[in-house]
Protein backbone atom coordinates (compact mmCIF):
# COMPACT_ATOMS: atom_id res chain seq x y z
CA UNK A 1 0.00 0.00 0.00
CA UNK A 2 2.74 2.46 0.91
CA UNK A 3 4.72 1.54 -2.18
CA UNK A 4 1.75 2.19 -4.44
CA UNK A 5 1.07 5.53 -2.80
CA UNK A 6 4.62 6.82 -3.19
CA UNK A 7 4.36 7.67 -6.89
CA UNK A 8 0.96 9.31 -6.41
CA UNK A 9 2.27 11.41 -3.54
CA UNK A 10 5.35 12.46 -5.48
CA UNK A 11 3.32 13.32 -8.54
CA UNK A 12 0.98 15.47 -6.45
CA UNK A 13 3.92 17.34 -4.95
CA UNK A 14 5.50 17.80 -8.35
CA UNK A 15 2.34 19.33 -9.81
CA UNK A 16 1.78 21.67 -6.89
CA UNK A 17 5.50 22.49 -6.69
CA UNK A 18 5.71 23.52 -10.34
CA UNK A 19 2.60 25.69 -10.13
CA UNK A 20 3.67 27.30 -6.85
CA UNK A 21 7.07 28.23 -8.21
CA UNK A 22 5.61 29.58 -11.46
CA UNK A 23 6.81 33.03 -12.43
CA UNK A 24 4.69 35.81 -13.88
CA UNK A 25 2.60 34.59 -16.77
CA UNK A 26 3.92 31.05 -16.72
CA UNK A 27 0.59 29.51 -15.84
CA UNK A 28 -1.29 31.43 -18.52
CA UNK A 29 1.12 30.75 -21.35
CA UNK A 30 1.31 27.04 -20.69
CA UNK A 31 4.87 27.02 -19.40
CA UNK A 32 3.88 24.99 -16.32
CA UNK A 33 2.29 22.31 -18.45
CA UNK A 34 5.41 22.23 -20.61
CA UNK A 35 7.62 21.82 -17.54
CA UNK A 36 5.57 18.88 -16.28
CA UNK A 37 5.51 17.30 -19.73
CA UNK A 38 9.28 17.69 -20.08
CA UNK A 39 9.84 16.10 -16.70
CA UNK A 40 7.62 13.20 -17.75
CA UNK A 41 9.52 12.88 -21.03
CA UNK A 42 12.85 12.40 -19.25
CA UNK A 43 11.40 9.95 -16.74
CA UNK A 44 9.80 8.00 -19.60
CA UNK A 45 13.15 7.83 -21.40
CA UNK A 46 14.89 6.58 -18.29
CA UNK A 47 12.24 3.98 -17.54
CA UNK A 48 12.40 2.53 -21.04
CA UNK A 49 16.16 2.14 -20.76
CA UNK A 50 15.78 0.11 -17.60
CA UNK A 51 12.82 -2.01 -18.60
CA UNK A 52 13.68 -3.04 -22.12
CA UNK A 53 17.30 -4.06 -21.74
CA UNK A 54 16.24 -7.72 -21.62
CA UNK A 55 13.34 -7.48 -24.02
CA UNK A 56 13.37 -8.80 -27.57
CA UNK A 57 13.27 -6.18 -30.31
CA UNK A 58 9.76 -4.98 -31.14
CA UNK A 59 8.61 -6.02 -34.57
CA UNK A 60 6.49 -3.06 -35.50
CA UNK A 61 4.79 0.13 -34.35
CA UNK A 62 1.69 -1.66 -33.05
CA UNK A 63 3.89 -4.02 -31.03
CA UNK A 64 5.50 -1.02 -29.36
CA UNK A 65 2.12 0.51 -28.57
CA UNK A 66 0.98 -2.76 -27.00
CA UNK A 67 4.10 -2.74 -24.83
CA UNK A 68 3.25 0.77 -23.67
CA UNK A 69 -0.33 -0.28 -22.89
CA UNK A 70 0.63 -3.40 -20.96
CA UNK A 71 4.09 -3.56 -19.40
CA UNK A 72 4.91 0.13 -19.28
CA UNK A 73 1.50 1.16 -17.91
CA UNK A 74 1.50 -1.63 -15.35
CA UNK A 75 4.91 -0.55 -14.10
CA UNK A 76 3.78 3.01 -13.49
CA UNK A 77 0.06 2.71 -12.77
CA UNK A 78 -0.34 -0.89 -11.57
CA UNK A 79 -2.85 -1.79 -14.26
CA UNK A 80 -3.05 -2.11 -18.02
CA UNK A 81 -4.61 0.37 -20.39
CA UNK A 82 -8.25 -0.63 -20.76
CA UNK A 83 -8.58 -0.05 -24.47
CA UNK A 84 -6.27 0.61 -27.43
CA UNK A 85 -7.69 1.78 -30.74
CA UNK A 86 -5.98 2.88 -33.93
CA UNK A 87 -6.81 4.04 -37.44
CA UNK A 88 -3.66 2.24 -38.67
CA UNK A 89 -2.44 5.56 -40.06
CA UNK A 90 -0.35 6.63 -37.10
CA UNK A 91 -3.00 7.67 -34.62
CA UNK A 92 -3.64 5.65 -31.46
CA UNK A 93 -6.09 6.30 -28.64
CA UNK A 94 -5.27 4.78 -25.26
CA UNK A 95 -8.20 4.74 -22.86
CA UNK A 96 -7.79 4.27 -19.11
CA UNK A 97 -11.20 4.05 -17.47
CA UNK A 98 -9.88 4.73 -13.97
CA UNK A 99 -6.76 6.81 -14.39
CA UNK A 100 -4.91 6.63 -11.12
CA UNK A 101 -3.75 10.24 -10.99
CA UNK A 102 -7.35 11.44 -11.32
CA UNK A 103 -8.96 9.08 -8.81
CA UNK A 104 -7.81 11.35 -6.00
CA UNK A 105 -10.00 14.10 -7.47
CA UNK A 106 -13.74 13.67 -7.22
CA UNK A 107 -15.75 11.79 -9.81
CA UNK A 108 -17.95 13.92 -12.03
CA UNK A 109 -17.35 17.31 -13.62
CA UNK A 110 -16.53 19.55 -10.67
CA UNK A 111 -12.73 19.59 -11.11
CA UNK A 112 -12.66 18.90 -14.83
CA UNK A 113 -10.92 22.19 -15.59
CA UNK A 114 -7.92 21.27 -13.45
CA UNK A 115 -7.52 17.78 -14.87
CA UNK A 116 -4.99 18.81 -17.51
CA UNK A 117 -2.42 19.60 -14.81
CA UNK A 118 -2.55 15.98 -13.72
CA UNK A 119 -2.20 14.59 -17.25
CA UNK A 120 0.75 16.58 -18.58
CA UNK A 121 3.41 14.48 -16.87
CA UNK A 122 1.92 11.26 -18.20
CA UNK A 123 1.74 12.64 -21.74
CA UNK A 124 5.46 13.30 -21.45
CA UNK A 125 6.02 9.86 -19.99
CA UNK A 126 4.45 8.21 -23.04
CA UNK A 127 6.26 10.47 -25.49
CA UNK A 128 9.62 9.89 -23.76
CA UNK A 129 9.10 6.15 -23.69
CA UNK A 130 8.24 6.10 -27.39
CA UNK A 131 11.19 8.36 -28.15
CA UNK A 132 13.62 5.85 -26.68
CA UNK A 133 11.97 3.13 -28.75
CA UNK A 134 12.62 5.10 -31.91
CA UNK A 135 9.20 6.71 -32.37
CA UNK A 136 8.65 10.44 -32.55
CA UNK A 137 5.16 11.41 -31.43
CA UNK A 138 2.79 14.05 -30.14
CA UNK A 139 0.71 12.98 -27.15
CA UNK A 140 -2.39 14.77 -25.94
CA UNK A 141 -4.93 13.81 -23.31
CA UNK A 142 -8.56 14.51 -22.61
CA UNK A 143 -11.05 13.77 -19.86
CA UNK A 144 -14.78 13.75 -20.48
CA UNK A 145 -15.86 12.16 -17.22
CA UNK A 146 -13.62 11.63 -14.19
CA UNK A 147 -11.67 9.46 -13.69
CA UNK A 148 -11.68 8.09 -17.26
CA UNK A 149 -8.98 9.48 -19.53
CA UNK A 150 -7.95 9.17 -23.17
CA UNK A 151 -4.39 9.66 -24.41
CA UNK A 152 -4.10 10.32 -28.13
CA UNK A 153 -0.75 9.42 -29.66
CA UNK A 154 0.08 10.83 -33.11
CA UNK A 155 3.12 9.18 -34.64
CA UNK A 156 5.30 11.61 -36.60
CA UNK A 157 6.80 10.44 -39.87
CA UNK A 158 10.54 11.03 -39.66
Amino acid sequence: MADEALFLLLHNEMVSGVYKSAEQGEVENGRCVTKLESMGFRVGQGLIERFTKDTARFKDELDIMKFICKDFWTTVFKKQIDNLRTNHQGIYVLQDNKFRLLIQLSAGKQYLEHASKYLAFTCGLIRGGLSNLGIKSIVTAEVSSMPACKFQVMIQKL
Partner: peptide, 24 residues
Protein backbone atom coordinates in the same frame (compact mmCIF):
# COMPACT_ATOMS: atom_id res chain seq x y z
CA UNK B 1 13.03 -2.79 -9.18
CA UNK B 2 10.37 -1.02 -11.23
CA UNK B 3 9.03 1.09 -8.39
CA UNK B 4 12.49 2.01 -7.15
CA UNK B 5 13.56 3.17 -10.60
CA UNK B 6 10.41 5.23 -11.09
CA UNK B 7 10.93 6.99 -7.77
CA UNK B 8 14.60 7.57 -8.52
CA UNK B 9 13.93 9.25 -11.87
CA UNK B 10 11.02 11.25 -10.49
CA UNK B 11 13.14 12.47 -7.59
CA UNK B 12 15.89 13.54 -9.99
CA UNK B 13 13.39 15.56 -12.03
CA UNK B 14 12.02 17.23 -8.90
CA UNK B 15 15.50 18.22 -7.79
CA UNK B 16 16.35 19.59 -11.23
CA UNK B 17 13.13 21.57 -11.47
CA UNK B 18 12.54 22.77 -7.93
CA UNK B 19 15.81 23.07 -6.07
CA UNK B 20 16.44 26.74 -6.78
CA UNK B 21 13.25 28.77 -6.45
CA UNK B 22 11.77 29.65 -3.10
CA UNK B 23 8.68 31.87 -3.34
CA UNK B 24 8.99 32.87 0.33
Amino acid sequence: MADAVLFEFLHTEMVAELWAPDPD
